[in-house]
Simulated assay, not measured.
Amino acid sequence: MDQLTAVFLVPVAAVLLDRFLGDPAGFPHPVRIIGKGLDLYESIVRRLGVNLRAAGWTAVVLFSGLAWFTVSTFTRISYLGPMLAVYFAYAGLALGCLMREAKKVTAFLDSGDLSGARRALSMLVSRETAELDESHIRRTLAETVSENLNDGFTAPLFYLALFGPGGMWAYKAVSTMDSMWGYRTDRFRDLGQGGALTDDLLAWIPARLTAFLLLFTGGRLGLNAAMAKSRFRADAVKMESPNAGWPMAATAWLLEGQMGGPTVYFGKVKEKPVLGPEGHPWTREMLRTLFALTRKTGTRTALVLIPALGLIRLLFFV
C-alpha cells in the first residue's frame, strides 16, 4: 500500500463507509473482541488477588499495545492489507451508528411509544432509563449524541489520521477499557483508574476540537454561536470529566437546551452539573437540529483532520 493511499484514502473511505453503512447489526466488530478480552483479564486478576490498580495500568499497556501490533500486522499483509486497513479504519468510527440509533429513539417518541424509546435509549447510555419520561429521554439523547460525537468519531479519527489504523485501535482499546471499567464504584474504582486517566489524556485535544467545530458549524447553520462561544467554557469545566463537558456545553448553548441535572446510575441518583440555559427542555425540533448539526460537524471534522494530520503523518511518522 503506497503512502498516499495509507495516509489519505483509507481515512476518507472509512468516513464514507461509516456515514452510509454505520455498524451493520450482527457484523463482527473488534470492540467486541477487546471487550471479551477485558472481561477475561478482569476475571483472572481478581482470581489471582493482585493489586487492582497496578493491574489496570498494566491492562492499558497490554491491550493498547496488542491492538496496535495486531492491526498493524494485518494491514501489512500482501494484497489484503489495503482492504483490511479500510475495514479497521471504518470499524473504529461510530458516528453513523450513533445517528441511526438516536433516530430510533426519536421515532419511538414521535409514535408515542415511551417504553420503546426507553429501550432504544438504553442501548446508547449506561444510566438507567426505565423510569425516564419524555422530557428526560430527549435530554439524555441530546447529552449522549453530543458527547459521543467526540468519543465515537473525532477522537478515533484524530488517531487514525495521525498514526493509521494501528494507532486508532490502540486508542479504541483504551476507550473501550474506560467505557467498561471507568466507573467510580467499589468494583471498578481501582481497576479502572489507568484506563480512565489515559482516556482523559488521549481525548483532551479531540474534545476541544469537537467543541470549536460544533461552534463553527452552528454559526453556519444560523444558530446563536456568538452566545455559545461566550458561555460554553464556563459550563465545560463543571463536569467531572475534563473532556465530556466541551462538546456537551457547546451543543447545549448552541441549541439553547439544558443538559445535566438528576441522573440515575446503578440505582443511585447523581446530580450532574447543569450545562446550557437552565429550565429549557429539549423538543423534537431541537433534536432534529442537533442531528443536522452533528452530521455537518462530523463532515467538517473529517475535512480538517484528514489533510492536516495526514500531512503531519507523512512528514514525521511514515
Rank of each mutant, 00 (worst) to 15 (best):
G245S: 09
L275W: 08
W246D: 03
A252T: 08
G276I: 07
M286W: 00
W282P: 00
L255W: 12
K272D: 05
V274M: 02
T283N: 04
L275H: 04
M248D: 07
G267V: 07
E271A: 15
K270Q: 14
G279N: 01
V264L: 06
G279I: 06
A252D: 08
G267T: 08
V274L: 11
W246V: 06
E271K: 15
G276N: 01
E278K: 14
P281D: 01
R284Q: 11
L287D: 07
G267R: 03
A252K: 02
G257T: 10
W282C: 04
G279Q: 00
F266T: 03
G276Y: 04
P277L: 12
A250K: 10
M259T: 08
K270T: 14
P273H: 04
A249T: 10
G257Q: 09
W246A: 09
G257Y: 10
T263W: 03
M259I: 11
L275C: 04
M259C: 06
P277G: 01
E271H: 15
P281L: 06
R284C: 00
W253M: 10
A250L: 09
P273F: 05
E278G: 08
V274E: 00
T263C: 11
P277M: 08
M286C: 01
H280Y: 14
G245R: 03
R284D: 12
L255D: 12
A252I: 05
H280F: 14
K272T: 06
W253R: 06
E285I: 05
K272E: 13
L254W: 12
P262E: 13
Q258L: 06
V274T: 12
R284L: 05
G279M: 01
P262Q: 08
K272F: 02
V269M: 11
W246P: 00
A250G: 07
G260V: 08
Q258H: 05
K272L: 13
V264A: 04
E256R: 13
Y265W: 12
T263K: 11
T251M: 12
V264K: 10
Q258E: 15
G267L: 08
P247A: 14
L255I: 15
R284F: 07
Y265F: 15
G257P: 01
